[in-house]
């Protein structure tokens, strides 16, 4: 539409714009008075109605059959917009890639599927260890599941140890959802974070992160999941976290070779910052 108008008027020295009109103002005023009559006096409504009618008809005639337009002359040449000109600024360039700048970083990332696979592998490893604990110590497959879902279900949170060893549909459902959700999320996180710490992904993803996570939970588990907090065997817990970390980290790092700057600063690997030309490293 704009382009047509442009084509139509090129070189004519004026540009057509919608012409000013009082009718919208009158219509709006009438409409307001129409409502104001409800709280003042019916006569106000009537006046409003008449105004609205006039405004509406005026507006109608303004746009039908063809909307009125006026031709606005172009401003004097001296007052017209100047063309945007190249600026002398230099733009710092990047070392990466052939084109210089503006790429999305880092250049090689794990596909999302790596994170999902890693999460699944880690989740299986973790669940296997937790179930092993349940069978060995409490002779129950359901015990670890119920303890996990006690984070969200008060009836399980207040249950006795014997009750926790029993099967609970609610517990199984919530437990599986929570476990799958966390496994996938953490797996994805590994896939995006590991390239930022490329030197020893196995140690970081497999050992450091699970231990940090365990430590963090140790401080707040009493509120997040009091039932688990009372009964937790920290050794087994940390072991299952490690199992997750090692399995997920292993699967993720095997998906594809990590291709990122091995000697660059963290911010560069995180994709927050780029290395400048002048440093000329590597």
């Amino acid at each position: 539409m704009a382009a047509e108008r442009e084509a139509k008027h090129a070189g004519e020295g004026g540009i057509e714009l919608p012409s000013p009109t009082p009718w919208p103002l009158l219509a709006a005023f009438g409409m307001t008075l129409g409502f104001a009559g409800l709280v003042t006096h019916p006569i106000v409504s009537m006046v409003g109605g008449v105004c609205f009618l006039f405004g509406g008809v005026g507006w109608w005639r303004e746009v039908l059959p063809v909307a009125h337009e006026i031709e606005v002359p172009l401003a004097a040449p001296a007052r017209r917009a100047r063309l945007v000109e190249p600026v002398p600024e230099t733009v710092d360039h990047l070392e990466l890639g052939e084109g210089g700048h503006r790429m999305r970083l880092p250049t090689h990332v794990f596909p999302l599927s790596a994170g999902i696979r890693g999460g699944i592998a880690g989740g299986i490893a973790m669940a296997a260890l937790a179930e092993l604990y349940g069978l060995l110590v409490h002779q129950s497959l359901w015990y670890p599941v119920n303890l996990l879902s006690a984070a969200a279900i008060p009836s399980l949170a207040n249950a006795s140890t014997e009750q926790l060893a029993q099967f609970s549909t609610e517990g199984l459902l919530v437990g599986v959802i929570v476990h799958v959700l966390f496994s996938l999320l953490v797996g994805l996180l590994y896939a995006v974070m590991l390239p930022m710490f490329p030197r020893h992904p196995a140690i970081l993803g497999g050992i450091v992160a699970p231990l940090l996570w365990t430590g963090l939970l140790w401080t707040s588990l009493g509120v997040i999941n009091p039932a688990l907090n009372e009964r937790i065997a920290w050794g087994w817990f940390a072991a299952s976290q490690l199992a997750f970390g090692l399995a997920a980290g292993f699967v993720v790092s095997k998906m594809e070779r990590i291709a990122t700057l091995q000697s660059a600063a963290f911010a560069i690997r995180a994709g927050l910052e780029l290395q400048y030309d002048e440093e000329g490293k590597e």
């Binding site: 970083l105 880092p106 999320l185 995006v192």
Partner: peptide, 20 residues
């Protein structure tokens, strides 16, 4: 008169600060 390098974004860090 110097512009910094023009970076569009980073899928990794963006994913990280979504997932965390």
């Amino acid at each position: 008169h110097r512009e910094p390098p023009q970076v569009y974004g980073s899928s990794n860090i963006e994913a990280a600060w979504t997932i965390v």
